[in-house]
Design a protein around this nucleic acid. Structure first.
Length: 311
RNA sequence: GCCGAGUUAGCUCAGUUGGUAGAGCAUUCGACUGAAAAUUGAAGGGUCCACAGUUCGAGUCUGUGACUCGGCA
């Protein structure tokens, strides 16, 4: 008997509103599989309509993991996500089922596919604020100069205008006592991976996004945000910075009209899609792209998966 | 009809005493291993309403016309 190979893991990637979730569910209806959500906004049980979570009905069609597992009072980190995901992949594999990781959060997907080593370390809000304050006092150029002294490798990779990443490099150094740059390494391969991507024509996808946003409002996004704010969660919503919620909050607080809020959500979602395509590129050799509009989509995808599983 | 203001990038607008144009947003491409729906870099894009005049040279000055907005009849 040969040594147990790496567990198989199917990843489904693509921009927001591309139909990843539905595709994953359809796969899970055809072959024994369970879905792990790698969506950095679906962890939170308080967020519903605005993050386009799979419906309860969808969750009956297939088993979903990492949805509604946390609260916006205690945001998840990359390390936490990674730990939970590897645990789940093991469990699902042990049940003789295929784990399917579905998500549009590039950093999270990459952390799994490249098996980044992300030490677990609790974010220190106070320290962050202190470093931020320090930067404001001496100037962020100067802060970046100081980073060059203590961690030149990290400084070289961070634009001096990018305050946030400069702050993070200091935060990591101060908490862990080790340089940010020394902790960047990919681990060994952990999974037998296949990644399928859903490909859209930009214009068609933008139109789909606008339609989805319209439906979110029909389904009561404004009421959801209103209720969360009434429950004292406005600050948490803003801190997490999730598209749809901040814009509606501003509308509820009278900073702009509802039409303006919708316009901003459309704009920010488009920007998000463009940023996502930096992580999931059309010429990435590790991604098998499928045209999302193709009527043969499911047939093509299933064929591909069967070939891979039989290997 | 008269008076005034305006017409410059896809949109909203800057443009100093005349030297062939800028910003923000949008669009596109990129960076990113401890916040990532975050943070951040770059690029493309203009017969400056039209025609005529003054000038070595006009987005800028003069005239005429077109269109838009406001006020008065």
């Amino acid at each position: 008997m040969s040594k147990q190979p790496y567990p198989k893991l199917l990843m489904v990637v693509g921009p927001t509103a591309s139909g990843k979730s539905e595709l994953a569910i359809q796969i899970a209806e055809k072959i024994p599989a369970e879905i792990i959500s790698a969506d950095s906004r679906s962890f939170y049980r308080e967020l519903r309509i605005g993050v386009a979570k799979p419906s309860l009905q969808d969750r009956k069609r297939a088993i979903h993991h990492l949805i509604d597992v946390g609260s916006i009072d205690a945001p998840w980190s990359l390390g936490q996500f990674q730990k939970e995901t590897s645990k789940l992949v093991k469990q699902i594999s042990a049940r003789q089922k295929l784990p399917i990781l579905v998500g549009g959060t590039g950093q999270y997907m990459r952390a799994i596919s490249e098996n980044w080593e992300v030490p677990e370390l609790v974010a220190d809000e106070k320290l962050r604020n202190a470093i931020q304050h320090w930067g404001e006092c001496i100037g962020f150029n100067e802060l970046h100069e100081k980073l060059k002294v203590v961690d030149p490798v990290a400084a070289a990779g961070i634009d001096f205008r990018n305050h946030r990443r400069t702050i993070r490099a200091f935060e990591v150094l101060l908490i862990s006592g080790k340089r940010f740059s020394e902790q960047r390494r990919a681990g060994e391969a952990a999974y037998d991976l296949m990644t399928i991507g859903l490909e859209w024509n930009r214009e068609a996808l933008y139109a789909r996004v606008d339609e989805r946003i319209r439906r979110m409002f029909e389904n009561g996004l404004a009421a959801e945000v209103h209720d969360l704010a009434a429950a004292g969660k406005a600050e948490q919503m803003r801190r997490i910075g999730v598209i749809g919620y901040s814009e509606v909050l501003d509308y509820l607080e009278g900073k702009h009209s509802l039409e303006e809020a919708i316009r901003l959500i459309e704009r920010n979602t488009r920007k998000f899609i463009r940023h996502q395509s930096n992580w999931f590129k059309a010429d990435d050799p590790s991604i098998e792209w499928f045209k999302a509009n193709d009527p043969e989509l499911m047939h093509n995808v299933l064929g591909h998966i069967q070939d891979w599983l039989s290997k």
